[in-house]
Design a protein around this nucleic acid. Structure first.
Lengths: 180, 180
DNA sequence: TAAGTATGTGAGTGCACACTTACAAACAAA
DNA sequence: TTTGTTTGTAAGTGTGCACTCACATACTTA
């Protein structure tokens, strides 16, 4: 044995987040994930319960990394006010999604929420992140809502490539959004 | 001839928006669109340039309907201030997406922006809507940005089914969002 | 060392689906 | 009525891909 199954699963999940992020659930063959992970397609099917099981597990890994980054970001807040903590969390999130895998994966997951298992995984992810944000920052409902609204705006900016659009309407939408 | 090709195209596009909205680009066979439109698959391929051409045309139809609704909504504004006009536009948009086809289609389109033609169609759609919103409401960049940020938040709320989640974090995210 | 167990793969199998082609029926113009 | 054009379809074709199975190669324990 070169590796344990559990270690392989971690490798595969990292590859899966990256590959699914680009081409989405239905358009990416599991051969692509297997190739990115450096193992055979057959073994991926032994490690996960079908392509859907792999995608759902990848969603879990994706939100794990997001939650972890936001928690770490909160520690670096300049002060104790809700505004300062939310700002630190937002900055940490912006840094994290600089490579775009985690952001694009979320978009892909939202697109296949007609599959109940995916919808539940998405809810579980946001449940974890949103409850943490609210309790850690001691922010109002409206502040939490705003935090996520502008997070979702980032999804549009990145998927549509609006940072590259010099026109005024695109500048308005991207103004002040941290360096994606 | 039962119908003109142009009339058929309109019928097919309505069906396409509806069907693509549910299952997305890669997971919906064009037979499904053809069936929803009541014609044969072969004729859909004659009316549009491949499945991609059909999807891009459907995106155009989707944003046409959105732009039209927002323009009509602006006419019904209570006053002339940016806030009142934006509010009226937001209300019109909320009514329009009550059936969810237009909202879900946007999510599906954002998920396949790795296809350049789709990315361009999405940009064209938001270009039209955003420029109209900004010029008609005479709103600041920040107001326009906020308008679209909360619009994108609706995408998350609907795809993840957060209206059905009674927990506090979900209530915070959905608070004040108009009746989807 | 023998038997058992976990890790790993090559080579299929069957099916769904994008797209084509050959052909037919309705309508128009001469 | 004949010729041409547009609308429409039934019946393929080829390919890509999810998933399986038989088999091989490590590593462990008795």
């Amino acid at each position: 044995m070169r590796s344990t199954a559990e270690a392989r699963r971690v490798t595969v999940l990292n590859a899966a987040v990256s590959v699914f992020a680009r081409t989405g659930f239905h358009a990416t063959p599991v051969t692509a994930v297997a190739a990115a992970a450096g193992i055979s397609e057959a073994y991926v099917f032994r490690l996960f319960a079908g392509k859907l099981g792999l995608f759902v597990a990848a969603a879990g890994a994706c939100f794990d990394r997001i939650a972890q980054a936001i928690e770490a970001g909160a520690e670096r807040a300049a002060g104790d006010s809700p505004e300062e903590i939310l700002d630190a969390m937002g900055g940490a999130y912006a840094e994290l999604i600089a490579d775009r895998d985690l952001l694009l994966f979320q978009v892909q997951a939202q697109a296949v929420t007609d599959i109940p298992e995916v919808a539940e995984a998405v809810r579980a992810g946001y449940r974890r992140v949103a409850t943490f944000v609210q309790s850690r920052a001691q922010a109002s409902d409206a502040q939490v809502q705003q935090f996520f609204a502008y997070g979702q705006l980032c999804h549009l900016i990145v998927t549509a490539g609006l940072e590259q659009v010099p026109e005024p309407w695109a500048r308005a939408l991207t103004a002040g959004i941290r360096h994606p």
